[in-house]
Design a binder for these strands. Structure first.
Lengths: 226, 226
DNA sequence: CCGGCACTTCGTCCCGGGCCGAAGCGTGCC
DNA sequence: GGCACGCTTCGGCCCGGGACGAAGTGCCGG
């Protein structure tokens, strides 16, 4: 059996609000400096430093130095999945979401979930692909159809090596329906960001489409969700 | 964003070794009494009682009474998935598994992972279905082929309603390769248990095949893993 | 070379939570 | 009805961990 002590150690690391906040801040897949993470956690740099050391030592974070800056990122997709599971449970229907400011609305609208699109846009993208017959998706798994694979290839979206068509759904905590995760979800997200169709909102996990980008995404994917 | 406080609360609940042990004991999908869980956690019934109350109040466990016994079970598949994610991380390659007694070997051999088969048997079952052309499986998703669906239907295995062929992989922490989870994984496990091909080992998550069962599973699935 | 910035380390304080013994409540059996 | 069992509640003890101020280290730009 997986070590109970080790499981409890990992869970306990995430069970402290400041560390949890810092980990969530990293869920957009980027790297943040220790100072930025201290702010995300609402604690002083000294406290953040101790917390980051523990998270890194436990293998949940990876750190790299650039000059005097220490950049931290999630150690891998397994850590991201764990946080996804925690977020899904934290947002379970039994506990209705607290709807706060416009920032929360922006995250519900469109955000990145580690490496793929989430929020209403992410779910709408999955729905549009399904409607076009390009994707089959349910709670357990997803599969790109041949037509879908050909279409994405024509767009220049990298699908899986060897033409693998299977893809992973991720339960969207804000919509309670699946969006597209895994390698394909990541490829679609990267494509949209690289083309400039989507841009990250500074200091947030939210993303936003330019008018041009919204139009191009409508053309490319049948995405009409505004 | 999912509430940080709520995420930390859930993680903290699992971050205490006694509670983690009790939750893991429930990962075979069954219900256990408060006394059994106290033993699983290595604590007195008084301590267990307080812990179980907190887990239930937080929505991680569901409790039902039968006479003077209180039966507890995992509250649902999302809780199981969270524990799967935690177990996968706890067993990450960076920390080689401690190989202890025969009990650990039995779990590595064959066990249930909440509602589906895991361990060498679970991975071998997935491999056998893939080898027979009945299943496609990678880390992101899985799909039953038409031939596979027909075969399982002939065996009396309930596949998804509406003939849905997509299925979810689950990363096996002991084998580091995927076994079959989701609705199809659960249906296969249930089928094998109901037919008596597999039997649960009392007081454990391990399962064991009778000689007859092993032969029938070899015939049914091409499962030759002994 | 020096000052400033990013971050870490050290020391100290305070509080929450895990533990169990004792007592109490509800259920079931004889 | 009484006794035993399963489990809960209460009270108290002890310890680990989160917080920050002060000081220290390393890097970078002028």
């Amino acid at each position: 059996m997986a070590s109970t002590a080790r499981l409890a150690e990992i869970a306990a690391l995430l069970g402290e609000p400041a560390r949890a906040a810092m980990m969530q801040a990293l869920m957009d897949g980027r790297a943040l400096t220790a100072g930025e993470l201290a702010q995300a956690g609402g604690i002083t740099p000294q406290t953040a430093s101790a917390h980051l050391a523990r998270l890194t030592q436990a293998g949940l974070l990876a750190m790299e130095r650039q000059g005097r800056h220490r950049y931290h990122r999630l150690a891998g997709t397994e850590v991201a999945r764990l946080l996804e599971s925690l977020m899904a449970l934290a947002e379970a229907p039994a506990r209705p979401a607290i709807r706060t400011g416009p920032r929360e609305a922006a995250l519900r609208h469109a955000r990145t979930c580690y490496d793929h699109l989430a929020g209403r846009m992410g779910v709408a993208l999955a729905d549009a692909l399904v409607a076009r017959g390009h994707l089959e998706l349910d709670h357990d798994a997803g599969r790109l159809t041949e037509a879908g694979a050909a279409h994405l290839l024509a767009l220049g979206v990298e699908t899986a090596p060897g033409g693998r068509l299977l893809c992973r759904p991720c339960l969207d905590w804000s919509e309670r329906r699946p969006h597209l995760a895994g390698r394909l979800g990541a490829a679609l997200c990267r494509h949209c960001l690289e083309r400039g169709w989507l841009r990250r909102v500074p200091g947030s996990r939210a993303v936003r489409a330019s008018p041009e980008g919204a139009r191009l995404m409508r053309d490319a994917f049948g995405l009409d969700w505004a």
